[in-house]
Design a protein around this nucleic acid. Structure first.
Length: 597
RNA sequence: GGAGCGGUAGCUCAGCUGGUUAGAGUAUCGGCCUGUCACGCCGAGGGUCGCGGGUUCGAGUCCCGUCCGCUCCGCCA
């Protein structure tokens, strides 16, 4: 049907006849001559309709935006002074000899070159939105990344295996998406939160090296970087140590950046312990582009008269921490009030601050509502430890450690965004030495920080129960520019340790047998030591293309209420379908109660 | 479950302390135009002010509820 993509018709084609197909991007009708910018996935090409050819000129007058046409014509250089330097095809044009209108089109609901169209409109008409060059580029970039992954994994001896989408619900972890069984009334499949157990069983099955570009499903609330279905590069290996697995994945990561981004990442990537990440950055996924760091001052204020500081300083579960903002003294009171409200979201009950006007002047050089409460020694210690300089602003957090880390960790990110402090570079690192368990205060029970199949760093099952809070796991997370893009661990391959972990998580023998019996049996069937990882491809590609949301790199994403404005999913089904599935809905129809706009 | 911001023409938005006929840009439609490329010029049409209720002589504007979109907290092993 065509000889060239529009975007590929350049000077080399001058003098030849070409046939191109595409969409009418824009029509400029000068009465006596008509220009059409014809668009396909490779770019734009100017087509000229001349009144000398009366018949197709008349046809061209009836062309409208987004009509699908086919043009045959002679490529010729544009007249002197009419070249368009902004287009790769800008030195040439095609004089139309023949025109076929393959399809007319309604005027599009939005203009393709309008950068400010609302996302709900874009998603409702995603098939039009996808025509925009940015979306085309995002999806093709994604394709290139995945092609590189396939090539690398194959080179490294990995075998791509598909695992079930219909599987069973498991306790722990995210809320499951359920699929009712018709043949087993009252029973449900669950969509996999990840292929975790299957890939472990593939190791027991002797595959040795498995990978899959796997869709995962989690029925939790959405964020800019979270969709209910998302894609992971899922990997599992046998007989490799933690470091060996990390090396393989790190090399993939580095090569992706080299080959797709032309960016050199350091080798090896830096590694940081979870404890250090929380202490210095208030986060388990620190953004190392950000120069701000948290500095603990517990010891400096422990015997202070100032109870707001002294009390947490004496509590082992709390921390007292300073965030120094270089040149931050120019930040206004109202802006600081805004930051106070900001940290309140994370549970902080206040945000103390000191403006450092003159370090040499000691107490008199400091401007703050709290200096009067602090001793000269404490103030001097704080200035010294934070390396405060004239013109700096110090923010303080004093509370339970989880609150301080969350609040000041978030404030650190917000300040960097507001003051444009982040270095323009790529900062990848591993976060290692994670705690195995965390105590959930609300549910009053231990939960696995990574997942329950992660190998705890203990010598025996008995060691676990003694001091769960201080058991480390062999988990590792890959963090890029402050976003978790992957994580993995060495897995438990002994049945007794797996049982002990279940027991600690409050999963009794019977429940473990019912829900994980197949895993426990497999671990008794000659399970090799194994370890693996998953890379979140949507997030990684979002970062690589510089998008603000994962939705920009997914062809048909869902909105924050997990709906698809285009298909209307999720939708209702008729009563017969429900009956076949032995299901009755208790929901009151939204449509009956309210028609939304 | 919670917080914030938003919802007015196809799209992007303005609309003050409530007040006559709700505006702009763009898109669309018609006319003119032979070198434009966001073509230009002239003209026209286009509104359930998300939805429901309330206050008021009077509501796009105020109040309550609700739905939708986005960001975030919780949640996401």
């Amino acid at each position: 049907m065509r000889t060239h993509y529009c975007g590929q018709v350049t000077e080399t084609a001058v003098g030849t006849d070409v046939t191109v197909c595409g969409w009418v991007h824009r029509r400029r009708d000068h009465g006596g001559v008509i220009f059409v910018d014809l668009r396909d996935r490779e770019g734009l090409l100017q087509v000229v309709f001349d009144p000398d050819r009366a018949e197709i000129f008349a046809q061209a007058e009836r062309l409208r935006s987004e009509f699908v046409i086919q043009v045959t014509g002679r490529v010729r250089p544009r007249p002197e002074g009419t070249m368009n330097a902004n287009l790769p095809t800008g030195k040439v044009e095609v004089l139309a000899h023949a025109l076929v209108v393959h399809n007319r089109a309604e005027p599009p609901p939005f203009q393709l070159d309008d950068p400010d169209v609302g996302e709900d409109t874009r998603l409702k008409y995603r098939y039009i939105d996808l025509r925009r060059p940015q979306m085309q580029e995002n999806l093709r970039f994604r394709h290139r990344v995945i092609q590189h992954i396939h090539r690398y994994m194959d080179e490294q001896g990995f075998v791509e295996v598909e695992t079930p989408i219909l599987t069973r619900a498991t306790p722990e972890g995210a809320r499951d998406y359920l699929v009712p069984s018709r043949t087993q009334p009252g029973h449900f499949f669950a969509l996999p939160q990840s292929p975790q157990l299957f890939k472990q069983l593939l190791m027991v099955g002797g595959l040795d090296r498995y990978y899959q570009i796997a869709r995962c499903f989690r029925d939790e609330d959405l964020r800019a970087d979270r969709q209910p279905e998302f894609t992971q590069l899922d990997v599992e290996t046998s007989f490799l140590t933690q470091d060996e697995v990390m090396d393989i994945m790190e090399e993939l990561f580095r090569r992706l950046f080299q080959e797709v981004m032309h960016v050199e990442l350091p080798s090896p990537l830096p590694r940081m312990g979870y404890a250090e990440a929380m202490a210095r950055f208030g986060s388990d996924k620190p953004d190392l582009r950000n120069p701000l760091v948290l500095v603990d001052i517990k010891d400096l204020v422990a015997d202070s008269e100032f109870k707001v500081f002294a009390h947490p300083a004496q509590d082992p579960a709390s921390r007292v921490t300073v965030l120094r903002v270089p040149s931050g003294a120019t930040i206004s009171r109202s802006t600081i009030d805004g930051y106070t409200q900001f940290v309140a979201r994370y549970g902080a009950r206040g945000l103390a601050w000191i403006k450092v006007n003159d370090v040499a002047a000691g107490r008199d050089g400091l401007q703050s509502p709290i200096v009067k409460n602090l001793s000269d020694a404490a103030l001097a210690g704080i200035l010294e430890r934070t390396h405060a300089a004239n013109g700096d602003l110090l923010f303080f957090g004093a509370d339970r450690a989880t609150v301080v880390s969350a609040a000041l960790g978030a404030l650190r990110l917000k300040l960097a965004a507001d003051l444009d402090l982040n270095r323009k570079e790529w900062q990848a690192l591993w976060v290692v030495d994670w705690p195995m368990f965390e105590f959930d205060d609300k549910e009053k029970r231990w939960v696995a920080l990574h997942h329950p199949f992660t190998m705890p760093r203990v010598n025996s099952a008995d060691e676990l129960a003694g001091d769960p809070a201080n058991v480390l796991s062999s988990g590792y997370d890959l963090v890029l520019n402050g976003i978790e893009v992957g994580g993995g661990s060495v897995r438990i391959h002994h049945q007794d340790i797996q049982q002990a972990v279940f027991r600690l998580l409050g999963i009794g023998l019977e429940e473990a047998q019912e829900k994980f019996g197949f895993l426990l049996e497999a671990l008794r069937a000659g399970a090799p030591p194994h370890a693996g990882m998953a890379l979140g491809l949507d997030r990684l590609i979002m970062l690589m293309v510089g998008a603000e949301s994962i939705r920009e790199v997914i062809a048909f994403p869902k909105t924050q209420t997990a709906q698809d404005p285009m298909t209307g999913a999720p939708g209702t089904v008729d009563a017969r379908q429900l009956r076949e599935l032995s299901i009755r809905s208790t929901a009151v129809s939204k449509a009956a109660a309210n028609v939304s706009g």
